[in-house]
Every structure is written in C-alpha cells, then in structure tokens.
Simulated assay, not measured.
Amino acid sequence: MSAEAESKSTETPGALWRRNLWVWAGLMLFLALSTWAAYWPYGRIDTAVAFGIAGVKTALVALVFMRLKHASGLVRVVAACGLFWAAILFTLTLADVLSRMANR
C-alpha cells in the first residue's frame, strides 16, 4: 500500500465530513437545479439538459464517494464500462424522445 493510500485510509472523521459535506451540498444544488429545469419550458433541449445534470451528479458520486480517483486500474476500467453502458442507454433514450417530438 502506498503512502498516499495509507494517508487516505487514515483520514480523520472531521476531514472526511468536511469533504463529503461539500460534495453533498453540490449534489443538493444539482438536485434543485434539475427540479427547476423540470418545470422550465426549454422546448426540445429539455431532456438533454436533464441528462447533462444527471451526468454531473454521477461524476461527483463516482469520483468522491466511490473513490475512483484513487482506485486500481481494474476498478477504473469496470467503472468506465458501466458509465459507457449508461451512456449508450441515455443516448438511445434521448433518440427515442427526440424522434417522438419530431412527429408532433
């Protein structure tokens, strides 16, 4: 185990709470933003804005709470595959929504 990994694993509870509190506050901010965006009439870009906000929230959770920044290479590859699969699903969902809007 490297010295950096040991220092992260022996992080004091106060430092852990301070770091996680900022991320939690950011997630709450993006939650409020996505709630506001759900009621704002953007038109055709509405779904893309919602997916963008969801992507930012996903990145925050993955980097901070899942600790992917300090994970091994295999864990990063598996997480990247999961995100790639989620991107495929989001793209297909967005294509379906946009194709239905074109037929209105």
Rank of each mutant, 00 (worst) to 15 (best):
residue 19 R to Q: 10
residue 32 A to L: 12
residue 64 V to H: 12
residue 96 D to S: 06
residue 1 M to S: 12
residue 71 A to R: 02
residue 42 Y to R: 06
residue 39 Y to N: 07
residue 13 P to E: 11
residue 23 V to Y: 02
residue 2 S to A: 00
residue 50 A to I: 15
residue 71 A to P: 07
residue 13 P to F: 07
residue 65 F to H: 15
residue 13 P to Q: 04
residue 10 T to R: 09
residue 70 H to Q: 10
residue 23 V to M: 03
residue 94 L to H: 10
residue 33 L to D: 04
residue 45 I to V: 09
residue 82 G to W: 08
residue 87 A to L: 07
residue 85 W to F: 03
residue 38 A to G: 09
residue 31 L to A: 10
residue 64 V to M: 06
residue 44 R to S: 09
residue 94 L to R: 01
residue 91 T to W: 11
residue 75 V to Y: 07
residue 14 G to A: 04
residue 68 L to M: 02
residue 84 F to G: 12
residue 62 A to E: 15
residue 53 I to A: 03
residue 70 H to L: 11
residue 75 V to D: 10
residue 35 T to M: 15
residue 8 K to Y: 11
residue 24 W to S: 09
residue 47 T to R: 10
residue 6 E to W: 04
residue 77 V to L: 06
residue 95 A to T: 08
residue 49 V to F: 10
residue 99 S to C: 09
residue 25 A to T: 12
residue 1 M to F: 11
residue 12 T to Q: 07
residue 50 A to Q: 00
residue 80 A to C: 03
residue 92 L to M: 08
residue 31 L to F: 15
residue 46 D to V: 04
residue 80 A to M: 15
residue 96 D to F: 05
residue 17 W to H: 02
residue 86 A to L: 04
residue 39 Y to Q: 10
residue 29 L to D: 13
residue 35 T to V: 14
residue 103 N to K: 12
residue 40 W to Q: 06
residue 47 T to I: 13
residue 52 G to S: 12
residue 100 R to G: 09
residue 25 A to R: 14
residue 61 V to H: 04
residue 63 L to R: 12
residue 20 N to E: 06
residue 27 L to D: 15
residue 82 G to S: 10
residue 75 V to C: 15
residue 91 T to S: 01
residue 85 W to P: 00
residue 74 L to C: 09
residue 44 R to A: 05
residue 81 C to Q: 02
residue 76 R to F: 01
residue 88 I to K: 06
residue 98 L to D: 01
residue 43 G to R: 00
residue 52 G to M: 11
residue 23 V to I: 09
residue 29 L to F: 13
residue 39 Y to T: 11
residue 12 T to I: 01
residue 54 A to E: 15
residue 61 V to N: 01
residue 103 N to S: 14
residue 51 F to A: 12
residue 99 S to F: 14
